[in-house]
């Protein structure tokens, strides 16, 4: 009996070890592309193409980064990206909080049926609406401006509506009752009572809207024309498709594009996870 117990314990330990090892193996594998990106960003073009492959660059100097900032109008692309990001986040916060409030804390006939339509739009592939939107924005002279990327953000997004509604449904009714008795109108209640307590959920929405706008590729590809309006993502893809991709500039650009998102993640990790979790659970 005693022997068996020891065997069992050894078995448990061994199993734990195996599982941990598997995880560790994959986790390290997962980091390799990042490692490559950072190391590659220090390599010269000839080093990048050198056979056999070497993990580390010959020199760690910032020549590539300096060249990148000098040869690519990085600040312009950054500015364009930030304009779109800013309005996307603002638009998402304003519109989705209002809409979610209307779907969760106010009752009106047909509400839940309409909400089903909201949910249904979540599975609508963007490609279905892309062409008519392109034609519509063409007629409105919006193609070649930021407007097609910004304006729709002010009219709600099913994903964020769902997320905020989940949150607001969980807020007890009593919280708004007293203000209502005090004669506050609905908008005041929304602004002064609900908004302040929704900060964590709003933070999640803001972060997701930020990431989405920062990383978006298809939208800018379809709607932006001139290099003057290019976002970082679009610029990176265009540089890649040049006759000369200049990899020694592209990889540093990649690092610079990833960094802000990673920093944001490590600072606001909680809200990232919360947003994804809330949208996913029992979805």
């Amino acid at each position: 009996m005693k022997k068996n117990m020891r065997l069992y314990k050894m078995g448990v330990f061994f199993r734990k070890f195996i599982l941990y090892f598997i995880l560790l193996f994959f986790a390290l594998l997962w980091l390799i592309p990042f490692f490559f990106l950072v190391m590659g960003s220090f390599k010269s073009t000839s080093e990048l193409f050198q056979v056999p492959f070497r993990w580390l660059p010959k020199h760690f100097d910032f020549d590539n980064y300096i060249n990148m900032f000098q040869q690519i109008p990085f600040l312009r692309y950054l500015k364009n990206t930030l304009i779109i990001v800013f309005f996307s986040v603002v638009g998402a916060l304003i519109s989705n909080s209002l809409i979610a409030y209307g779907f969760s804390r106010l009752r009106w006939p047909g509400r839940d049926k309409v909400f089903m339509i909201v949910l249904a739009t979540m599975i609508l592939p963007y490609q279905v609406t892309m062409i008519p939107l392109y034609l519509m924005f063409t007629k409105m002279h919006w193609v070649g401006t930021f407007l097609p990327l910004i304006v729709p953000q002010f009219f709600g997004n099913a994903f964020y509506i769902f997320l905020l509604r989940q949150f607001l449904t969980g807020v007890p009714k009593e919280i708004t009752e007293s203000s209502r008795i005090d004669g506050a109108n609905e908008f005041e209640i929304f602004l002064k009572v609900i908004m302040p307590i929704s900060k964590p959920a709003l933070a999640s929405v803001a972060i997701m809207a930020f990431i989405r706008a920062w990383n978006d590729f298809l939208g800018p590809l379809v709607f932006l024309g001139s290099d003057r309006l290019y976002t970082l993502s679009l610029a990176a893809s265009m540089l890649k498709s040049n006759y000369d991709p200049n990899w020694d500039l592209l990889l540093p650009l990649g690092v610079v594009m990833v960094l802000p998102v990673l920093l944001l993640f490590f600072v606001l990790q909680k809200y990232f996870i919360q947003g994804i979790t809330m949208s996913g659970i029992k979805g």
């Binding site: 392109y134 409105m140 002279h141 193609v143 070649g144 379809v222 024309g225 001139s226 290099d227 003057r228």
Partner: peptide, 23 residues
């Protein structure tokens, strides 16, 4: 001067959109 990659908007519909939209 404006730089419009992808063949001056030829390869990706930007030029056609601009012509159709009068811009």
């Amino acid at each position: 001067l404006q730089f419009v990659p992808d063949g001056a908007g030829i390869n990706n519909g930007k030029l056609l959109s601009a012509i159709a939209g009068g811009t």
